[in-house]
Computed example of a mutant assay.
Amino acid sequence: MLKLFNDFQRDPVLLRKFEVVAKCYSASCVFADSQYRQGVMDSEIKPAFPARIVGQAVTVQLSPGDLVDPLRAIEMSAEGDVIVVDAGGDRQTSVCGGLMGGLARNRGIRGMIIDGAGRDVDELQVIGWPIWTRTITPRGTHTMYSGRKDELSINVAIQCGGVTVNPGDFVIADTIGVTVVPLDRAETVLEAAHEQAEREQKTRERVAQGKTLEDLLEEFGRL
């Protein structure tokens, strides 16, 4: 595997705008709807415990059959980042646990999305550092025995949960699932998501007032 270690330009102002909009109900759904249902990861990828995060993606490409702990990604990440790992969908080997989560939390990294497995979710829940995975397993990588931790590439285009993720893309992950917004479309999608979140809140208020389906369709044209 060709090892590449790249970085990307972060946009804290734009990230803050995403954070504000993502305070709405069902944020992953709102951002999915706002890009015509695109960017949604496989529904198997779920949080180990209820959580919601928003951040820019630090991408990690692991080698199938030779998975290592992506410790180098923690070293290369910054506050506000979300680490997104292509572990080839491996359900038998965890690539993230409690100790790694503690190190990541200390750097302000918000969580990890893994097309694969994780472990130590009891510890991760206590420290409040969430992971989204296909499954949970006790089996870790060989890194703790071999000492190897560089068999990976960082900040390259990857596939995670059937979605192409590029470095710096925005990730919205909650209890429902994971949605990715490409960096080059971030402003447009953000505007659409803001409009949808506001419309849904107004609709929610009308429902609480006892309005009927016909009333809602007349006012909003949709649910």
Results as ranks from 00 to 15, higher is better:
10 R>W: 07
13 V>G: 04
51 A>R: 02
20 V>Q: 14
122 D>T: 12
34 S>G: 09
98 G>M: 04
46 K>M: 12
8 F>E: 12
43 S>L: 13
17 K>V: 00
104 A>I: 01
133 T>A: 15
24 C>L: 08
66 D>W: 15
19 E>V: 11
56 Q>K: 06
55 G>T: 03
67 L>P: 00
91 R>V: 13
123 E>L: 09
19 E>F: 05
65 G>S: 09
23 K>V: 02
88 G>P: 09
120 D>T: 06
87 A>L: 10
88 G>I: 06
103 L>V: 11
114 I>Y: 04
135 T>E: 09
36 Y>M: 12
88 G>V: 06
82 V>S: 04
74 I>V: 15
75 E>G: 11
57 A>I: 08
39 G>Y: 08
19 E>M: 13
72 R>Y: 14
9 Q>C: 08
92 Q>A: 15
123 E>D: 13
15 L>Y: 06
57 A>W: 08
116 G>S: 08
137 T>F: 10
117 A>V: 10
74 I>S: 08
70 P>C: 03
56 Q>L: 04
36 Y>L: 13
34 S>M: 09
42 D>Q: 09
133 T>M: 10
14 L>A: 08
39 G>S: 10
139 R>N: 14
136 I>C: 02
34 S>E: 08
116 G>A: 08
105 R>F: 09
14 L>G: 12
72 R>T: 13
116 G>T: 08
73 A>S: 15
74 I>P: 00
141 T>L: 11
84 V>C: 08
132 W>T: 02
84 V>M: 09
100 M>W: 00
17 K>H: 12
39 G>L: 08
25 Y>E: 13
34 S>D: 09
77 S>E: 05
36 Y>F: 15
115 D>G: 08
109 I>K: 01
113 I>H: 03
142 H>Q: 13
70 P>M: 03
71 L>E: 01
104 A>V: 02
52 R>T: 11
126 V>P: 00
100 M>Q: 04
106 N>F: 03
79 E>L: 01
42 D>I: 04
58 V>G: 02
37 R>K: 11
130 P>T: 07
22 A>S: 13
142 H>V: 12
129 W>C: 03
102 G>Y: 00
96 C>M: 14
115 D>M: 07
7 D>Y: 14
144 M>H: 07
99 L>V: 13
27 A>N: 07
7 D>W: 11
105 R>G: 03
14 L>M: 14
118 G>Y: 06
40 V>D: 01
35 Q>E: 10
105 R>Q: 13
26 S>H: 15
63 S>T: 15
13 V>T: 12
116 G>F: 06
133 T>E: 03
143 T>Y: 06
77 S>L: 06
75 E>M: 14
86 D>C: 04
73 A>Y: 05
26 S>I: 10
41 M>V: 11
110 R>A: 00
100 M>D: 01
48 A>I: 10
50 P>K: 14
32 A>G: 15
32 A>N: 04
